[in-house]
């Protein structure tokens, strides 16, 4: 699983390489364009293009029928029924491409989440590091400590919340750069977590991993950027709370998923004729 995650992550690193020094808007427009093209391509390969064309023409014909024979109730109703049938047929034609697209889209979304959903910590900014302990361990008895490379300051002793098996620390970003948090357990085991600090001024596209996952399948699929925590450790996961990376447009604060889907669909529709795809 880790090898697969690494491969996907590398692939996206290459895809986003040209946009790394720029504001995330550029990367967002670019990946939405690519996604739009990818969706069109999948549609062309997997859908019944002739069928779609035909069913769309049929719908048009029935619509015309309704307009022409609007005084004939029976005919209008019949036409409406047929439109409904055609619509169902149309949906069934799109089903296959949807199925084909769903898995790659999921992988894309997972990767995009780490590029657009968060912002790095700014120097001086404080946040929480949360460590979840596996059930059955006594938090109060567990010797555990958090240290860091010089760019991060650990400001508080561990705060143990028995309900939910959580241990929290407050940290403060001091220097820009990639740093490592080190969690020492039982005096002999150590586990690390990446953390990234960058000045807030000119926002750049950056890849952030908020959580180091456990070694189970689903969490490691959802959090592919860091190697899962070895299963022999008493820890479940380690999380750094990063500030949200919403997009701002004309005074609105928009979640990246909304921006992404709107742009991707807009590109898809905009380019369908150029690419020659019937959707």
């Amino acid at each position: 699983m880790w090898a697969f995650n690494q491969a996907i992550t590398w692939l996206f690193k290459i895809i986003f390489f040209p946009w790394e020094k720029l504001h995330p808007w550029w990367g967002m427009i670019y990946i939405s364009l690519l996604t739009g093209l990818f969706m069109l391509w999948v549609f062309r390969l997997t859908s019944n293009q002739a069928g779609i064309k035909e069913v769309k023409q049929q719908i048009k014909a029935h619509l015309l029928e309704i307009r022409l024979f609007k005084d004939n109730m029976a005919l209008t109703l019949k036409a409406q029924g047929r439109i409904l049938l055609c619509n169902l047929k149309y949906i069934s034609y799109s089903f296959k491409p949807m199925l084909v697209m769903i898995l790659p889209l999921l992988l894309i979304l997972i990767q995009l989440n780490f590029r657009f959903a968060y912002q790095p910590l700014a120097p001086g900014e404080r946040t929480i590091v949360k460590v979840k302990v596996k059930p059955g361990f006594d938090l109060l008895q567990m010797p555990i400590s958090l240290t860091s490379s010089p760019g991060i300051m650990v400001e508080t002793p561990p705060l143990r919340i028995e309900e939910g098996g959580e241990i929290d620390w407050r940290i403060r970003a001091v220097q820009e750069g990639h740093h490592l948090l080190k969690i020492k357990i039982n005096n002999d085991q150590e586990v690390e977590k990446e953390i990234f600090v960058a000045a807030r001024g000119a926002r750049k596209l950056s890849t952030l991993s908020p959580l180091r996952p456990p070694s189970n399948f689903i969490p490691s699929l959802l959090y592919p950027l860091e190697k899962p925590i070895p299963s022999d450790l008493p820890l479940q996961d380690i999380e750094v709370i990063y500030p949200s990376g919403n997009f701002h447009f004309l005074g609105l604060s928009l979640h990246w998923l909304i921006v992404y889907f709107l742009l991707a669909i807009a590109f898809g529709f905009g380019l369908k004729r150029i690419v020659g795809v019937e959707i």
């Binding site: 550029w26 427009i29 447009f249 807009a266 905009g270």
Partner: peptide, 13 residues
């Protein structure tokens, strides 16, 4: 529309 979309992105950046 495309022009506006690109322009908006540029403005935001």
């Amino acid at each position: 529309f495309l022009k506006t979309a690109f322009l908006s992105g540029a403005i935001a950046s």
